[in-house]
């Protein structure tokens, strides 16, 4: 464990806590893409299938449980909670996310570390996570002004993978035969997708203005 990876995990945790706070405090999920939440639930379920067979550390196991449970709770809340689900922007959240699932699955069958069930699921989860934010970014562009908590949620979610890239660079230089090129390349694509969001987020912070993404 290194400081970049720990900071990345904490940033990821903060993004989920900010999202939970937004939904709980405002009893609304307006501006949140349910499709992105469903994709993330799939990412965690596919990536953490080894939670019962591979014990790495107490920290690792607890974080896996927290990520799976919180994301499933958010999806349930956006689908089942009678007050929250009314504020879901159904007509704006129209990204065809099934294509993202299919494309990630095909790519995982072609490019993986080992042709085993677990490794293909792991590669699938890595590729899917890289594109999982797309429905959310499209929804932000369509829904005009973005409320603070939603903006912070997306910011922390994008920042965590950027910190993971620093973690991979650090491990590359400090650990012999460290190679995570699938996660690295995918992580670079994932972080690059946030580039324009980060730009407008920085502008809104610098000008102390409301965050607004151009349509």
């Amino acid at each position: 464990m290194n400081i970049f990876r720990f900071a990345g995990d904490m940033t990821h945790l903060i993004s989920i806590l900010v999202l939970l706070l937004k939904i709980y405090a405002t009893k609304s999920c307006s501006g949140i893409s349910r499709k992105t939440q469903e994709l993330y639930a799939l990412v965690f379920l596919a990536r953490y299938v080894d939670i019962f067979t591979e014990f790495i550390s107490v920290y690792n196991t607890i974080m896996k449980i927290v990520f799976i449970a919180s994301t499933l709770a958010i999806v349930w809340c956006m689908r089942g909670h009678r007050v929250v689900r009314r504020s879901y922007d159904k007509e704006l959240d129209t990204f065809r996310h099934y294509f993202l699932i299919a494309a990630s699955l095909v790519l995982a069958l072609l490019v993986h570390e080992k042709f085993t069930f677990q490794e293909i699921l792991w590669a699938f989860s890595i590729y899917l996570e890289a594109v999982a934010i797309l429905p959310q970014l499209v929804l932000l562009q369509r829904s005009g002004n973005v409320d603070n908590l939603t903006g912070q949620y997306v910011f922390f979610l994008g920042a965590y993978r950027g910190l993971y890239i620093l973690n991979w660079i650090y491990r590359y230089f400090t650990e012999p035969h460290f190679s995570r090129w699938i996660a690295c390349v995918s992580g670079l694509v994932q972080t690059a997708l946030y580039a324009d969001f980060f730009y407008y987020y920085f502008l809104s912070w610098k000008n102390n203005a409301k965050l607004k993404l151009p349509a």
């Binding site: 990876r5 995990d9 990821h12 990536r47 080894d50 067979t53 591979e54 790495i56 690792n60 974080m63 896996k64 990520f67 570390e113 080992k114 677990q118 490794e119 792991w122 993971y164 973690n167 995570r180 996660a183």
Partner: peptide, 10 residues
């Protein structure tokens, strides 16, 4: 610490 897959990251 034996890892079947070398995925020690979240």
């Amino acid at each position: 610490l034996k890892l079947v897959n070398n995925h020690d990251e979240l």
